[in-house]
């Protein structure tokens, strides 16, 4: 499928995949696609950064190649690896066949047949792909340096083989939860977008799409409650993913409306730190529930 040509078309494309984007995000995505630049998405956990790549892959009919980053991720796990066992076998076979020509042996041994493709290389070869480099902040700094060549020129240089260039450059989405500052060199090669928490209108639209079984009244109250909560001073604020979880949890308990006791019992779906839960439980929830109900009637 061809790329969208306007910001509105991009927003439409994302909406078809069940992703509700605001103008600012749709503009960034549109520019990244049109200019062929990687898109660097930073934001709090659970704000739908990874989801964008999944939706883009699905709607554009491309392969999704996902690289989950972790501390110590190296070339062998991220880009390519030589199949040493088969190479050793090849040497033995050459011996029995009596091959003594070193250059030929070397060329035979470092053939594409013996190259194991890992996500980065696989995104450059084969059918057009969406490359998702997920949670780059979890990888260590040396790994970022590996990425520079791929992000700038969509190519990988393998010393034994040469440079492998992508026929169709992949659409690259990089996400970070900011548990570490990603280096400026990476940022320079990308378009940057800070993914914020959605406003009430957008969050309700998201909930309608992602948790369709939740009654309308409950859904509005959940959104109002979470929006109020985000204005507070807590160690970890709930993301959209938590809102969806919580709404589904409440629906599973067959709740029709928010009740302070019910909220206290299900807080674990929303808040993930004991300090925050302890602060909220009791009076604070009762107050927020009352406020949320008022706000929700205005929304409906």
């Amino acid at each position: 499928m061809s790329l969208p040509t306007t910001v509105e078309a991009t927003r439409q494309l994302l909406a078809e995949g069940g992703y509700v984007a605001d103008t600012s995000l749709a503009t960034s995505v549109h520019l990244a696609l049109a200019m062929g630049r990687p898109l660097f998405l930073e934001g709090e956990p659970g704000t739908g950064k990874t989801e964008i790549a999944k939706v883009l892959a699905e709607r554009l009919g491309r392969r999704l190649v996902r690289l989950q980053c972790y501390d110590g991720l190296d070339l062998a796990a991220a880009a390519y690896e030589w199949d040493h066992a088969r190479q050793l076998m090849e040497i033995r076979l050459a011996e029995t066949a009596g091959v003594t020509d070193r250059d030929r042996l070397s060329a035979d041994l470092y053939d594409r047949r013996f190259l194991i493709e890992r996500p980065l290389l696989s995104a450059l070869t084969g059918t057009p792909a969406v490359l998702l480099i997920d949670e780059l902040d979890r990888a260590d700094e040396p790994f970022e340096a590996f990425l520079l060549e791929i992000l700038a020129d969509f190519q990988i240089t393998i010393p034994e083989l040469g440079t492998i260039r992508a026929e169709t450059p992949p659409i690259v989405i990089i996400t970070s939860n900011r548990t570490r500052e990603v280096h400026d060199a990476i940022r320079r090669r990308c378009l940057y977008h800070w993914v914020d928490y959605p406003d009430a209108v957008r969050e309700r639209a998201i909930l309608r799409l992602r948790a369709p079984g939740v009654p309308e009244v409950l859904s509005a109250q959940v959104v109002a409650f979470v929006q109020k909560l985000r204005a507070g001073d807590y160690f970890k604020l709930p993301g959209v993913a938590e809102t969806i979880d919580w709404a589904q949890a409440l629906a599973a308990l067959e709740a029709k409306e928010l009740e302070p006791g019910l909220v206290d019992d299900t807080l674990g779906a929303l808040m993930k730190y004991q300090d925050d839960i302890a602060r909220l439980r009791g009076e604070e929830t009762a107050k927020l529930v009352a406020e949320a109900k008022v706000a929700a009637t205005r929304m409906l």
Partner: peptide, 14 residues
Amino acid sequence: RQVQAGLRAILVRR
């Protein structure tokens, strides 16, 4: 709004 968001995506890094 589009121009602002677009320029922001390119000129802002942090």
